[in-house]
Design a protein around this nucleic acid. Sequence first.
DNA 1: AGTGTATCCTGCAGGC
DNA 2: TGCCTGCAGGATACAC
Length: 279
Amino acid sequence: MPELPEVETIVRQLAPALPGRRIRGVEVLQADLLQSSIPDFVRALEGARIRSVGRRGKNLVLMLSDVRFLVVNLGMTGRVLLHEGTPDRPVPHLGVSFFLEPHGTLSYADSRRFGRLVLLSAEGWEAESKRLGPEPFDPTLDREAFLGRLAVSRAPIRSWLLDQTRIAGVGNIYAAEALFRAKIHPHRQARSLTPQEAAALLGSLRAVLREAIESGGTTLRDYRTAEGGRGRFAPSLRVYGREGEPCPRCKTPIERLVFAGRAAFLCPMCQREEAPFDS
DNA sequence: AGTGTATCCTGCAGGC
DNA sequence: TGCCTGCAGGATACAC
């Protein structure tokens, strides 16, 4: 669920509120959200101060005062909710609560519990971050660099976009939307993209991510902002989840196909499988 | 280096 | 109403 725009929305809401505050206490209700034991996790975090809030790919990253990093991956259904004071009603599927000074609560809730909260040293986080591909908005990721990364892969471009080690932060929704906007079939081999197609894809990816961030992300069902609100981008989705609806460009019914175990959505007219005008 | 499949889980929609 | 099946924004491990 939460892809880059959803996590970015959460980060932007937390960033003005968290830095400088101390974690007074930690309560873990769902042990399988952690990699460490509950006592280790609690002991390591109690008394720590939050220095900054950031994002890397789909990960929410809290930097702590003693140069450690709390890395939160929300999986499919994770929610990060900030309440000043205590939540006025029980948080459904609550997994971990962080009690903040002076009077706040940061909650992690996750109905499917695919999410993970991991506490890492500076070195540990650096190594983890290095595994991930570049950020889509990294200014050094220009057309040439993007094309170069595509050129070394025979994977279908949809799989390439979902692979966090190739580019960070893209999930199934925005992969579908970016490919539609760039008129590229999701089956196309990454390295078969022309320089023009690669440039179009980079542009469309950045555009759709930017627009989604401006809308606070996409809520299909579970995603909530840190304030508990819904993302407003869902009505702007052009192909994702729209099987059978007319293509907004050419009116051809949108198709759904499954590969690599996941649904892909596309317009079969706008996104041809073969490269365009191949003699 | 790829793909397909399974796995971790729960909740919901749709069919009967 | 209730039961069953399929499906879901993610990540990883496995065999092939």
